[in-house]
Design a binder for these strands. Structure first.
Length: 580
RNA sequence: CGGGGCAUGGCGCAGUCUGGAAGCGCGCCUGCUUUGGGAGCAGGAUGCCGGGAGUUCAAAUCUCUCUGCCCCGACCA
């Protein structure tokens, strides 16, 4: 491609509304433009990167036995009503009506459509297993779109759905997708981790997220320091190593008594006032579950994990109690709730809270706390459970060594659905005994457009983006310098043709621009390889090659260009840990 | 959905408090010079100051209202 005839509208300044690096660079490198909140046009170079990502994913899907289809974006409401998600999915689902006043939505995901398709087609176990996928634009009406392509409302996703006759088959399908995802992200050249993820009400450990490691990631993941152990989990999922609650120990704890704690709403304030450690306090957190009060107790220095609490309650939606509800339920403003004498539907306590200690808790009276509270004697705990969020340096739930935190961007999610949708939509088949059975499903998503943003988020410097060669819009940028030296453009043209013959994606910067402009644009766009031809080099029979990632420059002999270029090409991919 | 902020040539911004000629930088067009890290000089084009209503002799500026966008907290590829 000749840049003089191409379209890459670069910007010198950061756009005012871009916050994260990938958004700024995608805008500045002339890859995307915003139409409206969370909705972007992919300009030529973004589209090329997206297509490269899609092709790698497509190859790995096909290799794993998945088959590509394309389903409609517009989906009828009645399918969603059948699974109950028309109501459950909420405002994120963009709804609309046609001229006959029939209701539709724009597809945020396709479980309903695919299940509807196959329940009409699959009659026999002989037709299973089946794994169908598509790569398509999805629409989710996010409450707050942000960060450019990282969290758009419209985005490109690969979604696959597997259908199996039995559990063993479903697990194999899941495993095949897990492997295919790992392979795809490796081939793209991303530094990533597969982590255990929350699987909500369905339960089990059959859900993994694929996280691109980047400081600006929105998710936090807990990773075991022992690489051999390999434990990695989303923070909301990570189990805390179970510590048996000592339910027997009855130490000589005196009767509990009130202490005045005027104005001390927070753990820190109470600690300061009573000269206590946060770990000697119990935080009593109140939640509203279908309008009823539920209390969850965690140690003062810990964070409650709402996902764990929700799962304990069977996956119902829970809401933090409003200040008004706290007053209604405890008789005191926020900051003074405690379990003693508390009248609520459930009182749950984190495993870490034992019977062997005297605790400080709120007194359900304004400006008052209790000390010497004994959980067995003074409070009826309905259930002890793993309720808190794992902390930095906690023991790994798998091996006991320490866990560390890192940030990640979720780019893929594999999920074993079981019969959630097939049961609701009656997708059945006859097994070898002629018995009717429900298909077992899995679903597997990859954020194609998000990967492009994540790749930039993970690879950039002061000059701009640094694309992995696997997905760079162009692998090589050929820069011809010396407008007054005609020999340069003749040789540059020859090099350009040779690169095309090698099948390289090459962008030839043949613009009548000053060198500085060309260098700056090339660095900004992040082409993995730059070839610079000027009068000086030409006089010495060489073309200068720059590896964008390492900044390393080498001279390539023009007399043997194809050979020396091919070797350097290989080297650049090797630096990324990629195979050509 | 709650809290905060912004809206002025293509982009980034000043001007708004205190009403009185619509400005700056970058980009764009023309010409000359320049050409190994975002050039210099000269000339030029480009604005419903987000929309509507109001106050006033007079509104980018004050009031009301609508819309759009961004940022901070609960969901997801």
């Amino acid at each position: 491609m000749r840049l003089s005839k191409y379209y890459i509208p670069t910007l010198k300044e950061d756009p005012a509304d871009a916050e994260v690096m990938s958004h700024k660079l995608l805008m500045r490198a002339g890859m995307i433009r915003k139409l409206t909140s969370g909705i972007y046009t992919y300009l030529p170079t973004a589209l090329r990167a997206i297509n490269k990502v899609a092709n790698i994913v497509r190859e790995e899907m096909e290799r794993a036995g998945a088959i590509e289809i394309s389903m409609p974006m517009v989906q009828p409401a009645d399918l969603w009503q059948e699974t109950g998600r028309w109501g459950y999915y909420g405002r994120e689902l963009l709804r609309m009506k046609d001229r006959h006043n029939r209701e539709y939505c724009l597809g945020p995901t396709h479980e309903e459509v695919i299940t509807d398709l196959l329940r009409g087609e699959i009659r026999s176990y002989k037709q299973l297993p089946l794994n169908l996928y598509q790569i398509q634009t999805k629409f989710r009406d996010e409450v707050r779109p942000r960060f450019g392509l990282m969290r758009g409302r419209e985005f490109i996703m690969k979604d696959a759905y597997s259908f199996d006759a039995d559990e063993a088959g479903a697990e194999m399908s899941y495993e095949a997708m897990y492997q295919a995802y790992s392979k795809a992200f490796e081939r793209i050249g991303l530094s990533f981790r597969a982590v255990q993820a929350d699987s909500g009400a369905i339960g089990g450990d059959f859900s993994h997220e694929f996280m691109v490691l980047a400081e600006t990631g929105e998710d936090t993941i807990a990773v075991c320091e022992d690489v051999a152990c390999g434990f990695a989990a989303n923070l909301e999922k990570a189990k805390v190593a179970s510590q048996p609650v000592d339910l027997k120990s009855e130490t000589n704890i005196p009767e509990f008594s009130s202490v005045s704690t005027p104005g001390a709403h927070s753990v820190e304030e109470v600690c300061a006032l009573l000269s206590a450690k946060a770990s000697e306090l119990i935080k009593t957190l109140l939640f509203s579950v279908d309008g009823e009060a539920v209390a969850a107790l965690v140690r003062g220095d810990r964070e409650l994990n709402e996902v764990k609490l929700r799962n304990l309650l069977g996956g119902n939606s829970i809401e933090m109690a409003s200040p008004e509800q706290v007053i209604e339920w405890t008789g005191a403003p926020v900051g003074f709730a405690g379990p003693v004498g508390l009248q609520v539907k459930h009182i749950f306590a984190d495993n870490e809270l034992g019977y062997d200690r005297a605790w400080i808790t709120g007194a359900n009276t304004c400006d008052t706390h209790l000390k010497n509270v004994h959980l067995g004697r003074d409070v009826q705990i309905e259930q002890f459970a793993d309720l808190r969020t794992i902390a930095q340096d906690d023991p790994c739930p798998q091996c006991g060594r320490a866990v560390h935190f890192t940030k990640g961007i979720e780019v893929g999610h594999v999920f074993k659905l079981g019969t959630k949708y097939s049961h609701a939509m009656n997708a059945t088949f006859l097994d070898e005994n002629g018995k009717e059975k429900t298909m077992i499903m899995g679903c597997y998503g990859i954020g194609i457009s998000r990967i492009v943003a994540a790749a930039i988020e993970q690879n950039n410097d002061e000059q701009g983006a640094v694309f992995p060669p696997s997905i760079a819009p162009f692998e090589v940028c050929l820069i011809a310098l010396g407008a007054k030296d005609e020999a340069v453009s003749i040789v540059a043209e020859d090099v350009y043709q040779k690169l095309l013959q090698l099948g390289i994606d090459v962008l030839y910067d043949d613009r009548k621009e000053r060198p500085g402009v060309k260098f700056a644009d090339a660095d900004l766009a992040g082409w993995p390889m730059q070839l610079v031809l000027g009068s000086k080099g030409l006089a010495n029979g060489i073309i200068e090659a720059k590896n964008r990632k390492t900044g390393q420059r080498v001279d390539l002999e023009l007399s043997d260009f194809i050979k020396v270029f091919s070797k350097w090409h290989q080297d650049v991919w090797n630096v990324w840990g990629l195979d050509l």
